[in-house]
Design a protein around this nucleic acid. Structure first.
Lengths: 196, 196, 196, 196
DNA sequence: ATCTAAACGAGACGGTACGTCAGGTCTTGGT
DNA sequence: ACCAAGACCTGACGTACCGTCTCGTTTAGAT
């Protein structure tokens, strides 16, 4: 949902937004997007949600924003953030759970690839993508690294920003290029490399 | 150009003109692609090259393959591979020259983003992209890292494959997300992190 | 206003119909319709009248019915029916005044064309159009012709129904096709042709 | 076919217009239009003709122009023009054959109504309609009336233009209003009225 | 003075059709 | 034989209106 109104300026009248339609759209978007590994056509999305196209365009600037919203509703369900254990352990768990959510059958991998691709082609969506998906996850990782340095389980000279880019970069690079899998082995290797 | 003809078996008349068309297509592709930061429409490309659309599809499977070819013609012109100096020095030069070619005004950054995006949406192009662009560059970096380990300027336990993914991953991650620039500072940081 | 209630069966409660809204709708309809030479969109009509769309659909079956009502409010203001003079004179006056109301700048011509057009596309509206606009005017003309035959100022063998169709037909044909103006010359010619 | 090129200015290259597609479009247009008594949707028309929508918009400014072209291909097949017999006889035959083509089951009546309606709503189409359909038919009738006056089977003072408007006007008025049928009785009455 | 019910402005909703854009294929006539 | 020009089919897009369906508010007769 993008058109959030601030504190009510004018007494709203008129029919309220249909939560039913909103949810049907998000559900259909997620289902179709996971099935196809990309955004469905707007017509398919509307038809599958039992909704008029205008209702989609009324609330989202593009179908990609819908898919992003749908994704955000389910993302992080399975991701382990941690923060109180030795860094290598927390990091490995974080990465492993992330990789699993992405790479398992029916996982979000194809969807993430399509969304990252769309962010390259559509500057307007790029903003949403960066601010609502990429940045929060990167911030969480940076925070994890910083707190580890503070409690001594990470080297003092560790640069959290740089490490985050290398860790997430390796993940995305593998996901986008596909030359090697995102598996637990990789999670271990990355976690170990971060603490040395 | 993908349908490379073997050594010319029979003297051909139209060949001269064809080579002319091929170059016009590549030139137009590069010019338009750099201008727009993405692939032009096929009609625009053909018109701008003074060529029929069919002539494009006769030699390339899609306009993206054209753009890739055009990119390969100019890529690496400015990239410093090295190999005989201490790793940190070679690596920093390699990364810095790469980043410059990408991030300078009129650089290939927007083009790389668009091609990486397209590789996510088009499985056929993904193969070309991986084999003709991504893999060679990754191989060069892995070779550099391996040789450095051999001559002792890199730690013995360095995992070249993993390091390559982290280094290139960081680069692509920044390029695709755009949260921070690809500059010489980053090159230094990455080079230093690789030798520790 | 179409939904006339019969004798009150049950004691009515609830807010009364707003005469203000009704008039605002008719005014807006007439203004916009004359401006644009056709029916405005329902949204425009409602907005321009400061009214909800439902208020329109509560009282009229379609926007066309609104425009028809608006037209009936102003039609015949300037039309001279006559009946006591020689047919040619009465007829000429009737036709001339009708033509003027239609063809003068800001006249109802464009509106009549649009309504006749809509009657072809919408069977439900066709009934309204025929019964509330077309038929009364045709009846008036037939009555005029019949009374003229009775008082001897028209030929005894004159077929009033046929003549009415020819006179009104010529008018509508010129209005709809636009190959020649609806002017006083035409009124004279038609009036003369009717009495021979 | 609307985009007639003048005398060839530049040697034409490129694929020629597909006569097959053109005919398929016209056939589908006629079939669907007669079935539905109006223009089909552009999607239906394209699908039914096995053609892309763009192919329709490439050659006709609107679907209505297509339907008009389709109608012109079949119009006049059954209309008897005459010209060498007494006016009343020629006229009656002309009108009767016209009425039959319009009013018989599966006739062009509904289509003519829809086209006349569209001409009221779409100024661009109105030009086509007037010039390619209405005017030629009116000219034929005027010529018939004029020649009859010349050979003495029509009154000397007959005004061919006015009579044409009254005859065709009566026809269109009945067709558009629908208060009475277009039958042979009407043809007789109109023919008789023209010669008195 | 309350209650009930209808009409009201507002505006979101499901739908239909529109006209446009781009991709990749096919066909013609000129060189 | 090759090629420019360009017509073709396909499929998706985003927009314009339509007529219906809520909202919460206002108004007026019945209790």
């Amino acid at each position: 949902m993008l058109r959030e109104h601030g504190p009510v300026s004018r007494p709203r009248t008129g029919r309220n937004r249909s939560g039913q339609a909103r949810q049907a759209i998000l559900d259909a978007a997620l289902t179709l997007a996971l099935q196809q590994g990309g955004a469905p056509t707007v017509d398919d999305l509307a038809a599958s949600a039992g909704v008029g196209k205008q209702t989609i365009y009324r609330w989202w600037p593009s179908k990609w924003a819908v898919v992003l919203d749908a994704l955000l509703d389910v993302a992080d369900r399975e991701v382990h953030i941690g923060g109180s254990n030795p860094l290598q352990q927390d990091l490995e768990r974080f990465l492993a759970s992330t990789f699993t959510a992405i790479a398992r059958p029916g996982g979000t991998g194809p969807l993430l690839r399509a969304l990252m691709a769309q962010a390259q082609l559509d500057a307007e969506f790029a903003v949403l993508w960066r601010e609502r998906f990429i940045a929060p996850r990167r911030r969480a990782l940076v925070a994890l690294l910083d707190s580890a340095r503070a409690n001594g389980t990470a080297p003092a000279q560790l640069d959290a920003e740089l490490s985050a880019d290398m860790l997430l970069g390796a993940m995305w690079y593998r996901l986008l290029v596909g030359h090697a899998p995102l598996d637990t082995t990789l999670a271990q290797q990355l976690a170990r490399s971060a603490v040395t």
